[in-house]
Amino acid sequence: MARYVMVVDLEKCTGCQTCVVACKMWNGLGPGIQRVTVVEKEEGEYPNVRRAYIPKRCMNCKDPQCTKVCPTGATKRDDEKSVVTVDKDKCMGCRYCMMACPYNARTFYKHEQWYHEEPSAWEKKRYKEHTEGVVDKCDFCISRIDSGLKKALTPGVDPDATPMCVLSCIADALHFGDIDDPESNVSKIIEARGGFRLLPEMETDPSIYYLPKRTGNEADKS
């Protein structure tokens, strides 16, 4: 049993959206379907302003609301890896899970679309893996984790077992690993720098940790 979590270093994130594009490319997501969003938060008036880019995706919560409300059992939590998945063969498209998700991290896959007049070769190949009329969400690229584990690779360390957004991040702002393993990269980062999670009052125990910004001296020391 492992609990895979993602760590987002808000000090390093530049809001470049590479993770968004990498996710769409790897998962073959058509127009309108987006599993990752980079939320921009800005406050204050010049010269007293604060700004942050906050990448947001399904939090793959330990105690998720979506699994409870799902009437078909399509949305369920994989306790082995601590990832919430949607069984596309069971989902009936009622969208109750979308209402229940406090992070608004799910999308309804209405119908097949592509970016050009005709689907590209890549789109033809990947779009077949999607089902129309069901709900779509980030599952930490569970297919990559599964195939990596079969090859005895370590998720978060070996590229072939790591989510695509983490691999693609140009600023090394995303980290992935097993928080139950005290020697994992994510455990060490969280131990060193703390971190917080979004909407703790919802008591869903989300699996994405955000690292706060540091002063220049603290950052230089690291």
Binding site: P71, T72, G73, G93, C94, T131
Partner: peptide, 12 residues
């Protein structure tokens, strides 16, 4: 429903 033919799963 997005997948009408699966409506019966709604009572599961």
């Amino acid at each position: 429903l997005g997948r009408k033919e699966r409506f019966w799963r709604g009572m599961m």
